[in-house]
Amino acid sequence: MTDTSNAHQLGFSRRSLLVMTASALPLAALPSFAQSDDNDIKQVKSSLFGDRKIQDGRVEVKLPPIAENGNSVALDISVDSPMTESDHVKQIVVLSPLNPEALVSRYTLTPANGKAAISARIRLAGSQTIEVIAEMSDGTLWRGKKPTLVTLAACVIG
């Protein structure tokens, strides 16, 4: 984008391209859902799960590799569980390390679900790795993660 050497080839005048770049930058600092420096992911995790051990596995998280807009990104979660009375997923927690609020959403499941899989659409304040933690009926905690790249739009109005 800042490579002005081919500005003429692109058909824009060099000046208008520079003006566009210059004015696109401050706009980029004003996305509808700004990134936050003081994301509270640690607090949220400790208030929900204390210092209980979280193991990696059993949770599969799907996000598109590239999200063309952070305002709505498809998230699919599935947890490896038989979903019986004695062995099922009790809750699923979606966490973001970059959004102004780490806790994106929380789902309560029961054996009546039959299958521990959900889909939702979430907001992402920028490229990041989403963390999903599942709490099982036996009290164990399992985690899955997925990174995604959020691209920046050219013509953002505000």
Binding site: P100, L103, S105, R106, Y107, T108, A120, I122, R123
Partner: peptide, 8 residues
């Protein structure tokens, strides 16, 4: 489902 501002 418990929704927060991170839900689209």
């Amino acid at each position: 489902g418990e929704f927060h501002p991170g839900i689209a």
